[in-house]
Amino acid sequence: MTGQRADARRNYTRLLAVAEEAVATYGADASLEQIARTAGVGSATLRRHFPTRHALLEAVFRERIETLCTRARDLAGARDSRAALLAWLGEVTAHAAAIRGLAVALTYDMATDPDTAHEHCATGRLTEAGDPLVRRAARDGVLTPGVTIADLLALITGIALATENHPDPAAEASRLLGLTVAGVSPGRS
């Protein structure tokens, strides 16, 4: 955004603020045309700043994804690798279940070339942040062999999508994550 004219920066900021509200209300399928109208710009201006719905969702969730990435880095040095991984997975699940549209944004990322996680996409950034936690848990023998960070993010995304219309999506997602964890990382005896 640096190097843009002042009016372009204002349009970007206004579009992003309106998009955040629209996605919170209507989810990832919020009307792009309505976002542009509410922001007081034309659809061409919206497309210049956000050429695709996916680009708009990336911008809407950028700060939340960065918070989760920072949390993964903070947990990387924890003494108990299983507890660290589970704490992070719980936080990712809570965010994906509670923040409308985030799980759909993650599925957009997964639907593109899954072998090419781009650092700018939410899933790519979460993969990069969570991978050290997964590798350490696997090395410590507290994770079922063969489980990858991509597997875990796909499970979380599925849980969030499955609980989206539940009366308490975050609580239900947490419960389902607990059931999943029993399968991928059984507790120590």
Results as ranks from 00 to 15, higher is better:
residue 2 T to A: 14
residue 2 T to C: 08
residue 5 R to N: 10
residue 6 A to F: 10
residue 9 R to W: 12
residue 10 R to F: 10
residue 13 T to Y: 07
residue 17 A to W: 08
residue 18 V to S: 02
residue 19 A to H: 01
residue 19 A to I: 01
residue 20 E to A: 14
residue 20 E to R: 15
residue 21 E to M: 08
residue 22 A to Y: 06
residue 24 A to W: 05
residue 24 A to S: 11
residue 28 A to W: 08
residue 29 D to G: 15
residue 31 S to F: 01
residue 35 I to W: 00
residue 36 A to W: 00
residue 37 R to D: 11
residue 37 R to P: 03
residue 38 T to D: 08
residue 40 G to Y: 08
residue 41 V to F: 02
residue 44 A to K: 03
residue 45 T to W: 04
residue 45 T to H: 01
residue 45 T to D: 03
residue 51 P to I: 02
residue 52 T to H: 04
residue 53 R to T: 06
residue 54 H to W: 13
residue 56 L to G: 09
residue 57 L to T: 07
residue 58 E to T: 13
residue 59 A to E: 12
residue 59 A to H: 08
residue 61 F to R: 03
residue 66 E to W: 12
residue 69 C to T: 14
residue 70 T to H: 12
residue 72 A to M: 05
residue 77 G to M: 11
residue 77 G to E: 13
residue 78 A to F: 07
residue 78 A to Q: 13
residue 80 D to P: 11
residue 80 D to I: 09
residue 82 R to M: 07
residue 83 A to I: 08
residue 86 L to V: 09
residue 86 L to Q: 05
residue 87 A to L: 12
residue 90 G to A: 06
residue 90 G to W: 01
residue 91 E to P: 03
residue 92 V to T: 08
residue 92 V to Y: 07
residue 95 H to N: 05
residue 96 A to P: 01
residue 98 A to P: 03
residue 100 R to I: 01
residue 102 L to P: 04
residue 104 V to G: 09
residue 107 T to F: 01
residue 111 A to D: 14
residue 112 T to N: 08
residue 115 D to L: 14
residue 116 T to Q: 14
residue 121 C to P: 04
residue 123 T to C: 07
residue 126 L to A: 04
residue 126 L to C: 03
residue 130 G to S: 08
residue 131 D to S: 14
residue 133 L to T: 06
residue 137 A to M: 05
residue 137 A to Q: 07
residue 139 R to V: 10
residue 140 D to G: 07
residue 142 V to L: 10
residue 142 V to S: 09
residue 145 P to L: 05
residue 145 P to D: 09
residue 146 G to Y: 09
residue 146 G to S: 08
residue 149 I to Q: 11
residue 149 I to L: 13
residue 152 L to A: 06
residue 152 L to I: 10
residue 153 L to C: 06
residue 153 L to Q: 07
residue 156 I to A: 00
residue 157 T to A: 01
residue 158 G to R: 03
residue 159 I to K: 00
residue 160 A to C: 06
residue 161 L to V: 03
residue 161 L to C: 05
residue 162 A to V: 03
residue 162 A to P: 01
residue 164 E to V: 04
residue 164 E to L: 02
residue 164 E to S: 11
residue 167 P to E: 05
residue 169 P to D: 01
residue 171 A to L: 11
residue 173 A to T: 00
residue 173 A to D: 00
residue 173 A to Y: 00
residue 176 L to Y: 00
residue 177 L to W: 02
residue 178 G to K: 05
residue 178 G to H: 04
residue 179 L to E: 12
residue 179 L to G: 14
residue 182 A to N: 10
residue 187 G to P: 15
residue 187 G to V: 11
residue 188 R to E: 11
residue 188 R to G: 04
residue 189 S to T: 12
